[in-house]
Lab assay of single mutants.
Amino acid sequence: TETRTFTDEREARRFEQEARDNGKDVQVRESNGKFEVRVK
């Protein structure tokens, strides 16, 4: 599991989409204006 934290939602979404395109299981959590993207 890899976790990346972004402050920019667009960057978080781009990373999320890229991971999904690669067939990964992705979860995005938002807290305090930060976006935590977990990739399995």
Rank of each mutant, 00 (worst) to 15 (best):
N32M: 09
G23A: 04
A19Y: 04
A19M: 15
R38M: 14
A12P: 00
D8E: 07
N32Y: 07
R4K: 10
E9K: 06
S31F: 15
T5D: 05
E9H: 06
E16M: 13
E16S: 08
E2L: 12
V39A: 05
G33S: 04
N32E: 10
N22A: 15
V37M: 01
E18W: 15
T3H: 09
K24Y: 15
R38P: 02
R20T: 05
K40P: 06
G23C: 07
E2F: 13
K24H: 13
V28H: 02
R38H: 14
E11Y: 03
R4G: 03
V39L: 06
E9N: 03
V39N: 02
V26K: 00
N32P: 04
R38C: 14
N22V: 09
E9V: 09
R14M: 11
T1M: 12
D25G: 05
R38I: 15
K34C: 12
R29E: 09
T7V: 10
F15P: 01
D25R: 08
D25K: 07
R20A: 04
Q17Y: 06
D8K: 03
V28G: 02
T1P: 08
Q17P: 00
T7H: 09
R10T: 13
K34Q: 12
T5N: 06
R20M: 07
E30R: 08
V28D: 01
E11F: 03
E18I: 11
V37G: 00
V28L: 11
E11M: 06
E11V: 05
R14D: 08
T1Q: 10
K24P: 01
G33T: 00
R10D: 12
K40C: 15
K40E: 12
R13S: 05
S31T: 13
T5K: 05
E11H: 05
V39C: 08
V37W: 00
T7C: 11
E2C: 15
R29A: 10
V26N: 00
E30F: 15
R38L: 15
S31P: 02
F15Q: 02
N22S: 13
K40R: 12
S31M: 14
D21A: 14
D8P: 00
Q17H: 06
A12S: 02
G33R: 02
T1G: 12
R13P: 01
E30T: 08
R38Y: 14
G23D: 04
T3R: 06
K40D: 11
T3C: 15
K24A: 12
V28I: 11
V39M: 05
D21R: 14
G23I: 01
D8N: 10
T7R: 07
E18A: 10
D21Y: 09
E11Q: 07
R20Q: 05
E2K: 06
R14I: 11
R13V: 05
D25H: 11
